[in-house]
């Protein structure tokens, strides 16, 4: 066992991901308020503070919080408009919801002693599946059978088209997997690495190195937290574009 092998060091890097009930120590039913509930609620609270409380002044000349809220709005709006096109703007609230939830979950997860909801495949898989199903259903509703055009690449020579179609179909169905595992994997690995370095900090000889490493990892994680939320949102826009305009 790792705990014994590392000579008295206590490695529990995965403990931070354990889902446990908030009250008591019973089993986790679907309705049990757990640390998942708490941290999801905190992300809702943070989003409300930024986007609702922060903008309550409705100032023409915004204060700092309102500026950030407007910046977030403009950032996501522009992303949807640029990537999914003008008619993709209708789905802007949906993408804004995903982006805000992920970005706040990621950042709240960086607080010491916190729980990162987006580090769980269960959460990211639901997010990715929701995007996948929405996009697929939307594609068929808007374009009918014409949605299958995304698998049939007309620019390619005729002989290559069936092979490309096969590759396209496989990649289409891998989308939700890569979409979800990318986010969960990034969040989990970074947090676990920080925890491992934190355990090393207990050894006097290497603790300065460990602390520097934790700091560096933390900075990287701040970056990764934002980038992963951005990547998730922009990929959603890209998939949405496929549903809206299946002709390449």
């Amino acid at each position: 066992m790792a705990t014994e092998e590392s000579g008295g060091l206590v490695f529990h890097p995965m403990d931070q991901f354990v889902v446990k009930p908030l009250f008591g120590d019973g089993p986790v039913y679907w309705y049990t308020p757990t640390n998942v509930t708490l941290w999801m609620f905190l992300s809702v609270l943070a989003i409300s503070l930024l986007l609702v409380v922060g903008t309550r002044g409705r100032a023409i000349v915004p204060n700092r919080v309102q500026s950030i809220a407007e910046l977030a709005y403009g950032f996501v709006y522009k992303m949807v408009e640029d990537v999914a096109g003008k008619d993709g703007v209708r789905y802007f609230p949906y993408i804004m919801t995903l982006f805000m939830f992920i970005v706040f979950s990621n950042f709240l997860g960086l607080l010491p002693m916190s729980f990162t909801t987006t580090s769980h495949v269960a959460v990211t898989a639901i997010l990715a599946m929701a995007v996948f199903l929405t996009v697929t259903i939307l594609g068929f509703v808007l374009n009918g059978v014409g949605f299958l055009n995304i698998f049939w690449i007309r620019q390619a020579p005729l002989i290559l088209r069936p092979i490309l179609a096969l590759i396209e179909i496989i990649s289409y169905f891998v989308r939700p997997v890569s979409h979800s595992v990318r986010l969960a994997g990034n969040m989990m690995a970074g947090h676990a690495v920080i925890k491992v370095f934190a355990a090393f900090a207990a050894i006097l000889a290497i603790s300065p190195f460990a602390i520097v490493a934790i700091t560096a990892m933390y900075a990287l994680e701040v970056l990764v937290s934002f980038i992963q939320a951005y990547v998730f949102a922009i990929l959603t826009c890209v998939y949405l574009k496929d549903a809206l305009h299946p002709h390449h």
Binding site: M14, F17, V18, V19, P27, V28, Y29, W30, Y31, T32, T34, V36, T37, M40, T117, S119, H120, V121, A122, V123, I126, L127, A184, M188
Partner: peptide, 15 residues
């Protein structure tokens, strides 16, 4: 913990 399927319904519900 990520693959503890017993907590999945809980996480999905709250998500």
């Amino acid at each position: 913990p990520q693959l503890d399927f017993s907590t999945f319904p809980n996480q999905i519900f709250w998500l």
